[in-house]
């Protein structure tokens, strides 16, 4: 079921799973008396440059570590992952935020609409191919890009920033 190595560093344990296994893994972690991960600390989207990830942080009194569950390899064109609202209703707004910022579709979330950006907005601002209008740090001399231009122009010299290393 694991889609990558288990890592442990500082006070955090990290496991990686496929998007299809999210429901089973979260349900087991939450319900199994050996785990009892009752607190959902965070849900975050991540754009890796060539794929997307959804990162859950969980807390349980059975372990001194935070557990980080990463659903990996979501397609960048149509990122889909099952919603965690069947276990934690509080995940609803965090998933709305990840949808608003990354365009990740959480299947089963009854209220998946934009939460911060206006309803007629069309871009996903935290994606790596969304450049700031005046991004002097990353593209000196490139000039001002239009805020809602999602894809860089074909002759752009500023490549999408991709995650390196792990």
């Amino acid at each position: 079921m694991l889609a990558g190595p288990v890592r442990q560093r500082h006070d955090q344990t990290e496991i990686r799973i496929a998007a299809g296994d999210v429901v089973d893994v979260l349900r087991t972690l939450h319900d199994d008396p050996a785990f009892r991960f009752e607190v959902l600390a965070d849900v975050a989207g991540v754009d890796m440059g060539d794929s997307m990830q959804v990162v859950y942080h969980l807390w349980s009194e059975t372990t001194p570590d935070w557990l980080r569950v990463i659903a990996v390899d979501l397609s960048r064109d149509d990122p889909r992952v099952p919603s965690a609202t069947f276990l934690w209703k509080g995940a609803e707004w965090m998933e709305r935020e990840a949808y608003d910022m990354f365009g990740i579709i959480f299947e089963g979330n009854r209220d998946l609409r934009r939460i911060y950006m206006p309803p007629d907005y069309t871009s996903f601002p935290l994606r790596k191919d969304f450049f700031l209008a005046d991004d002097a740090a990353r593209s000196p001399g490139q000039g001002v890009r239009h805020m809602e231009q999602v894809h860089p122009p074909a002759d752009s010299e500023a490549p999408i920033r991709r995650a390196r290393g792990r």
Binding site: R9, Q12, D42, G165, R166
Partner: peptide
């Protein structure tokens, strides 16, 4: 390269940074 999560107790609850 790596990932880190830190959570603290703010007056309003668990404040986290990833």
């Amino acid at each position: 390269p790596g990932r880190a999560w830190a959570a603290i107790e703010s007056p309003r609850g668990q404040y986290g940074c990833y």
